[in-house]
Computed example of a mutant assay.
Amino acid sequence: MPMSPYVRSLRDRVGHDLLLLPGVTAVIRDADRFLLARQRDTERWSLIGGGIEPGETPQEAVVREVSEELGVRPVIRRIVGAYGGRPLQTTLPNGDVVGYVTVAFHCELPNAAFVLEDAELIETGWFTRDQSKGIARHEWIDDVLDDAAR
């Protein structure tokens, strides 16, 4: 995924050092199944989401991210939780160290049809909690899915 102009301006100042960035995550579910997407950069499965841009509310950001990645505007139902710490810290292939703090929202899609944004995503799939544990995934999503399933 391309780096936002805001993050690029921060990287110009701090180089590869740790940046703590705010993000959003969409938890989209159909009965006991959750929508996951396999990311092009890591080839791992995760939830739909991304960074919050300057001046954007978390709610606006999750609507924008889902709209960009799936081509459909979601309906936000509630906050599932907030997540961060070591599980959401990573070193990117270019050496940049980033830590995310993300607010997860339970979202619904107005219809089942969506269009995959293939610059960032390889594919999507519906998984139960048990099925999701058997795939190559970002492990921090386990906590989000557990909280959403309650």
Results as ranks from 00 to 15, higher is better:
148 A>F: 09
113 A>D: 05
136 A>W: 02
136 A>E: 04
15 G>S: 03
14 V>I: 10
66 V>W: 14
128 T>G: 00
28 I>P: 15
65 E>F: 08
101 V>C: 11
120 E>W: 05
139 E>T: 12
76 I>D: 09
89 Q>A: 15
8 R>C: 00
114 F>T: 00
36 L>M: 13
107 C>M: 04
36 L>R: 05
133 K>P: 03
33 R>N: 05
59 Q>K: 11
24 V>K: 00
18 L>C: 01
136 A>I: 09
60 E>I: 01
110 P>L: 01
63 V>P: 09
124 T>D: 04
134 G>D: 12
106 H>M: 11
26 A>D: 08
100 Y>G: 00
6 Y>D: 04
16 H>S: 13
119 A>I: 09
33 R>F: 07
99 G>S: 15
80 V>I: 08
65 E>P: 14
140 W>S: 01
76 I>M: 02
72 V>W: 14
69 E>S: 15
37 A>T: 13
100 Y>A: 07
18 L>Q: 04
80 V>T: 06
64 R>F: 12
103 V>A: 04
17 D>C: 11
89 Q>K: 12
49 G>K: 02
108 E>F: 01
16 H>A: 11
6 Y>M: 05
101 V>D: 03
35 L>C: 14
45 W>D: 10
87 P>E: 07
115 V>D: 01
69 E>Y: 08
113 A>N: 15
7 V>F: 15
133 K>M: 13
55 G>K: 09
114 F>L: 04
83 Y>Q: 06
105 F>A: 09
49 G>M: 11
114 F>R: 07
127 F>M: 01
128 T>Q: 06
19 L>Y: 03
47 L>S: 08
17 D>A: 09
9 S>C: 07
148 A>M: 10
82 A>N: 08
32 D>C: 01
135 I>E: 07
49 G>F: 01
131 Q>E: 15
137 R>V: 11
73 R>W: 10
25 T>K: 09
45 W>C: 13
28 I>Y: 00
103 V>I: 06
143 D>G: 14
76 I>V: 08
105 F>V: 04
17 D>L: 04
31 A>M: 03
88 L>V: 04
52 I>T: 02
138 H>L: 11
